[in-house]
Structure formats: structure tokens, C-alpha cells
Simulated assay, not measured.
Amino acid sequence: MIPSDMLVLELASVLAGPSVGQFFAELGARVIKIENAGTKGDVTRSWKLHSESPETDTPAYFCAANWGKESLVLNLNDAQDLEQFYSLAAQADVVIASYKPGDAEKLKVDYSTLQQLNPKLIYGHITGYGPDDARAGYDAVVQAETGFMYLNGEPEGKPTKMPVALMDVLAAHQLKEGLLLALWKRERTGKGSYVHVSLVQAAIAGLANQGTNWLVAGHNPQRMGSEHPSIAPYGSVYTTKDNKELVLAIGDDRQFARLCQVLCSPETAEDSKFMTNYSRVQNRTELNSILQGLIVRFNREELLQKLHAQHVPAGAVQQVAEVFEMPQAKEMLLQYPRAKSGIRQVAFNLEQQAPRQLTPPPPYTRR
């Protein structure tokens, strides 16, 4: 864990920056969320499901990334409020910002300005497109521009947005890494740092093997539903006898042979069209048809138990409500008396320490 006297100031809204703030809160830091008095705080306070009360200022979206924080409502265009912020910045360890290029300078809360008050300050800045492009970054647009929407969906369907703001999540993880390195550097040198992450570059880095499919192999990836371009069956979804769905993730030929044994069809693994991963990729359509015909003979839970016993990678396709019945999910729940549960941003255990109990997402209060 990190020292409890570590101070993090959050000049960020929506998901990417705030999730980094919650990450530090979970590790033990004091995190103060600076909210804009002119916009009534973080915009996600107004992003509500149809089932949520119109009066709530801590809706589900806001609760995704704002546990463990204090809220301080300021108008940074007001000289007195700006001085209040400066007094905090002079003591802070980390500032997290998500301004468009040039906006922090206009408000006089940019790194160069704050560094003069606090030379040891570490300033983490998330932009949409980098320091030279003033466009605001919106996850859905970045998903479209970086190939994710084109790749996501069924082959004959339309490009499809991911169901979570994945570009925000990727950028947040990159900023966490950069800030932790900057903190380590400061321990060695005593110097602060400016750490910049953009949604678009985090997304491009996240293309991973799909990016190198083009760069290395000259293959321009296409929509394949949940199939994998280089492995079969991997990500493939099948329906069982009880009309439930499961996914297979067969990574090598030994796993495929064990799969066929469990499905009472060892001859399928011995067929030259399916003996190797390369041959299975070439004959993917026929393979999927054969596997579906075999899998439909079993109820899902019965089949999954047999597959797991033989170390064959497979799992049930679950709704979100079912996810939070998993013991691993229950371990990640944030609990507080009289508050609805939230989700931890820290998904690891450090030195076997119990997760810190956090206060719930703060209400919007103008002091």
C-alpha cells in the first residue's frame, strides 16, 4: 500500500481519469476530486439509467470510478477558488487531469504552472488525441477511428461499439503505469514528472495482435464475431442441450484432442482437416458445425465440469447479474453501510493485506 498522507488531486471527469483517482484511493491515498462549479460537477452525475431517480447525484455510472474520494467544488475562473486549489497543489503528490490541449493553460492549472508551486509534483494528463490535437476525446469516436468498431460484431453485421468505454479503461491503465513509474523516479531523484497518455494511442497499442496482423502479415483484419483469426476453436460460442451458451478457447492441439475425447468423438481430432491449429483455422466453418452437433448433446453444466476436469479451456456465457455471483467478483465488491456496492479498481492483492474500506462516491456539495 502507499502512505496515507499521499495527496492526489483529480481534475478529471467521466471514466479514465476518475478510475485512476479511485485506484490511488484504494491504495491508501487521500484523493480530492475537484469538481467544476459551473457544470455542477462531473458530467457523469447526470448520466442516469431510466430506472434511476432523477434526483440522484451519484448514479451508477458515477459510482463506477469515484469511491474513496472527497469532493471539492471550485470555480477555477474565480481568483479565490484558484488560490484554494493552489494551496492544495503545493502539498500534492499527484494531479490527474483530463483537459483538452490548451485548456489547463487557460485555467492556469497546467503542469508548468503547478510545478513552480511544487517542483516534486507528478502531473498525469489524459487527452483524446495528444498535445497537438485539440479535439475532445470520446470513447465511441476513438473506438471507431482506431478499428475497434470495425472489428467488433458479426461478419455480415454493422460495426459495433464495445459495451464498455474500453478506450478509457486502456488509457487509465497506461496512466496508472506511468504515474507509478514517475513516483518511483521521484524516490530516486526527488524530481516531479509530466506523464501524458492519449485515448487514441492507448487504443492503437491495444490493437495488439490485430495490429501486427496488418503490420507483419499484411492481413487487414475483418469482423469475425467472437472467432479468433489465428486460432480455432477460440472464442467460438456454442449452444448446449439445455439451450445455454458456452465458449471454447482451445490454444493447442493437445487441448483439442482432449476436447474431442470429452465430446465422445476422438476421430475428429485425428481427421487431417482438424489435427493442427493451422488446419483447423483453414476449415473453421466445417469444424464449428461438427462441434455444435456434438456439444448440443450435453447440458451446459455437465459438459463444463467434464471439460474443466480435463483442463480444456471453456466457460459459460454469463449475464452481468450472473458475474457478480462468482466468488472472484464478490471479492472485488466495495462495501459501505447504507451504500450500494461498487467495484474495486485494484484487481490485485498486495502483501496479503485486506482491501481498504472506502467511503462511497461523494455527493455534489458546493461549500
Results as ranks from 00 to 15, higher is better:
residue 57 D to P: 09
residue 51 S to R: 13
residue 364 Y to L: 11
residue 249 A to R: 02
residue 309 A to R: 12
residue 254 R to T: 14
residue 48 K to H: 07
residue 149 M to V: 05
residue 347 A to T: 14
residue 21 G to F: 01
residue 361 P to Y: 02
residue 279 S to I: 02
residue 102 G to V: 04
residue 23 F to Y: 15
residue 126 I to P: 01
residue 89 A to K: 08
residue 117 L to Y: 04
residue 186 R to S: 11
residue 227 E to K: 14
residue 284 R to S: 11
residue 54 P to S: 10
residue 348 F to P: 07
residue 92 A to C: 01
residue 44 T to G: 05
residue 179 L to F: 03
residue 262 V to W: 06
residue 30 R to Q: 14
residue 223 R to S: 03
residue 360 P to L: 03
residue 317 V to Q: 02
residue 104 A to C: 04
residue 247 V to Q: 05
residue 231 I to N: 08
residue 87 S to F: 07
residue 345 Q to I: 12
residue 128 G to E: 09
residue 167 M to S: 09
residue 290 I to S: 00
residue 125 H to K: 03
residue 270 E to Q: 15
residue 211 G to C: 07
residue 336 Y to M: 03
residue 8 V to S: 01
residue 270 E to C: 13
residue 289 S to T: 13
residue 350 L to M: 13
residue 188 R to W: 02
residue 232 A to Q: 01
residue 156 E to S: 14
residue 140 A to N: 11
residue 82 L to K: 15
residue 21 G to D: 06
residue 192 G to F: 06
residue 208 A to L: 04
residue 149 M to I: 00
residue 103 D to A: 15
residue 113 T to D: 06
residue 211 G to D: 07
residue 343 I to H: 10
residue 19 S to M: 12
residue 37 A to W: 05
residue 327 P to M: 13
residue 137 G to R: 02
residue 147 G to Y: 00
residue 165 A to N: 08
residue 101 P to V: 08
residue 274 F to S: 01
residue 211 G to N: 06
residue 177 E to Y: 13
residue 267 E to Q: 15
residue 287 L to H: 03
residue 60 A to S: 14
residue 327 P to R: 12
residue 297 R to D: 07
residue 64 A to S: 15
residue 107 L to T: 01
residue 4 S to R: 11
residue 3 P to F: 01
residue 132 D to N: 15
residue 33 K to G: 10
residue 111 Y to C: 10
residue 220 N to M: 14
residue 39 T to V: 00
residue 328 Q to K: 10
residue 215 L to M: 09
residue 22 Q to C: 03
residue 330 K to S: 02
residue 7 L to H: 03
residue 208 A to H: 10
residue 350 L to D: 12
residue 202 A to L: 09
residue 134 A to I: 12
residue 61 Y to W: 12
residue 150 Y to M: 11
residue 220 N to Q: 15
residue 323 V to D: 09
residue 103 D to I: 10
residue 137 G to S: 03
residue 264 C to E: 15
residue 319 Q to Y: 10
residue 35 E to P: 00
residue 312 V to L: 08
residue 322 E to K: 11
residue 98 S to I: 05
residue 123 Y to W: 04
residue 1 M to H: 14
residue 176 K to F: 07
residue 137 G to W: 01
residue 352 Q to I: 05
residue 111 Y to E: 06
residue 200 V to Y: 04
residue 174 Q to C: 11
residue 93 D to F: 08
residue 25 A to K: 00
residue 309 A to V: 04
residue 140 A to W: 08
residue 85 F to H: 04
residue 356 R to N: 03
residue 290 I to D: 05
residue 216 V to G: 01
residue 262 V to L: 09
residue 116 Q to R: 14
residue 190 G to K: 07
residue 121 L to Y: 06
residue 234 Y to S: 08
residue 147 G to M: 04
residue 163 P to T: 15
residue 144 A to N: 07
residue 367 R to H: 13
residue 51 S to V: 11
residue 71 S to Y: 00
residue 182 A to H: 00
residue 208 A to W: 05
residue 312 V to M: 08
residue 323 V to W: 11
residue 170 L to S: 10
residue 252 D to K: 12
residue 129 Y to E: 01
residue 280 R to S: 01
residue 228 H to W: 03
residue 51 S to W: 10
residue 231 I to C: 11
residue 164 V to G: 04
residue 192 G to V: 09
residue 45 R to M: 04
residue 185 K to A: 10
residue 357 Q to N: 12
residue 346 V to H: 05
residue 270 E to I: 10
residue 108 K to A: 09
residue 50 H to P: 08
residue 260 C to F: 01
residue 169 V to K: 08
residue 38 G to D: 07
residue 2 I to M: 06
residue 117 L to M: 08
residue 28 G to N: 00
residue 5 D to N: 14
residue 245 E to W: 14
